[in-house]
Amino acid sequence: MSVKIGIPKTLSYYVYYPLWKKFFTELGAEVVVSDNTSRPIIDAGVKETVNDACVPIKLFHGHSLDLKDKADYFFIPRLVSVDGEHIYCPKFLGLPDMVKNTLKDLPEILAPRIDLRKGKLELIKVVYKIGSVLTKNPLKIYSAFKKAKAYFKRFNSLLSEGHTAVEAIDVLEGNEERKDFDSQEQERDLKIAVLGYPYIIYDPYVSVNMIQKLRDLNVEVVTADMLTDEELTAQSHKLFKEPFWTFSDQVVKAGYHYYQEGEIDGLIHVTAFGCGPDFMVGKLLNLGAEVEDDISFITLTIDEHTGEAGIVTRLEAFIDMLRLRRKRA
């Protein structure tokens, strides 16, 4: 029987799952994930986690509980820096410890530290370290990682076309057709940027399926993942100091980009209650919107209690407002 490696379905799942999944399966392991986010998963997480933690971290604890009897190992990499420059928020840095300290009877946790500030060589070392749980053959590990990287590239190009992470994973795994967003563009009369961390905007339960709802309302949705690194970097000069948190930097710059040339009607910042970095991200996006007369800004905060209804109502009201404004103009 093959070794089962468990990956909780939140946080970096929405960014790196295809990479790790391919890598581990190439090395002969089976990758198992927790169920889709649901009320019971949230409640279980809320009950266990330190109470001041943000919603996504509580959710991660809930997913870990869901997964705990289904896997031989948990894979919770300690993400510190993946581009050698930005770092992750403190809770990502301490994630494996938090989970270990809080939850009992977990399978063994594989928590390699991924900190590429130390240089490119570090990547090779980390990959070997992770792979060596399954095989000691470096060639096998190397070739598995090469395949995983190619697969991961396809994932990212699907995101850049406008697929959500869930849709992109479905396409890669052959469960869904690739969407053709260009052909639908003409019919849509509004364009909205949905910005927030991947595990918030792409998790259908957490985001109350916001992206699909907007599409159903005939809105063209754009995200941070649809921009190139060059487009993001071009916004750097507007910041006195670039945000050092990986996702926050991306979100702020994407916001600035869309304000400047995205021809958007509105920008929705989706944030989680208790998120530290967003104290600044939200304010910067809000201040950025103030100078743009024809772009409206709204923050939607996800917390552990708000039901779907409240957020959907606000979302629909926002769209109505944009349409009304458009008619008047």
């Binding site: 986690t49 330190v50 403190p90 410890d97 300290n101 809080t102």
Partner: peptide
Amino acid sequence: MPEIVAKS
């Protein structure tokens, strides 16, 4: 944030 991690 750092103190929340510590608290856990």
